[in-house]
Amino acid sequence: MKETHSNHWSIEARAFEIKYTPFSHNFWVLAHSNHPIDQLHGLAFDPYEKVTRAIGSSSDLLQVIHDSTIVWSLQSNQPTVVCISGHEVEVKNRWQAALNSIPEINELHLSYPNLWQHFYKKNSNTIFNTLGQIMGIPKPARLLSTCAPGINLIISQDIINRYHYAI
């Protein structure tokens, strides 16, 4: 049976390449017919001003940000891997597993690392890896051929186990 255009949904791993560095910020995109519909990022969040920051410090929190309107992260020709594709229900159920985990991850009130700490502390790429595992994507840390400090860490195995998408 031929898949109809309206059923072409996907979850993509993407990398925002940080100018003048070899590093990337990896994040997730929910797409419909190859157009981004939604995004999940790990970002620095200022708890006093209630704003996200492109570059944070230890005075900020590391939070999962669910925001379909982030435009700065979408670069032409950015590294992208389609991880899951198919019918809307399956793809959105995986996405929903990640969405369900957001409150618990954010309630941990993790400190965002200072710039020099990204190689050994949990950061935005750690959020990427954790959410990927929750969505049932095999080895999310190895999907993109980028230099993404923190990608091999996870936020919490208990949280992954609690929210993991069940096939």
Rank of each mutant, 00 (worst) to 15 (best):
V29A: 12
Q96I: 10
P113S: 05
A166S: 11
I84L: 15
K50V: 05
T126R: 03
A97M: 05
H87I: 07
A97K: 04
T130L: 14
G86I: 10
R53G: 01
K122W: 00
G86L: 11
P22T: 08
N114L: 12
S10R: 04
W28T: 00
R53M: 06
S124T: 03
I155T: 02
E104P: 00
K139D: 13
T69D: 12
L43W: 07
H41D: 12
K92L: 15
I137H: 01
N106A: 05
H87T: 04
S111G: 11
E88N: 09
G56F: 13
S76I: 09
N152K: 12
T80F: 00
K139F: 08
P22I: 06
T126W: 06
L143F: 01
R162G: 01
A15V: 04
E90K: 11
R162C: 01
I70H: 06
C147Q: 14
L74G: 02
N129C: 12
S24M: 05
N7V: 11
C83A: 11
S24D: 03
S33G: 04
F45C: 00
D67R: 09
F23N: 15
P138S: 14
T4H: 10
I160A: 09
S156C: 06
A13W: 08
W28M: 01
E17I: 14
Q39W: 09
V82G: 00
K92G: 02
A31Q: 04
N114D: 15
H5E: 11
D38E: 15
P36K: 04
N100L: 08
I137K: 02
N93G: 01
N114E: 13
S156N: 04
W116D: 13
V89D: 10
K121M: 09
L153D: 02
F119W: 15
Q96F: 13
M135V: 08
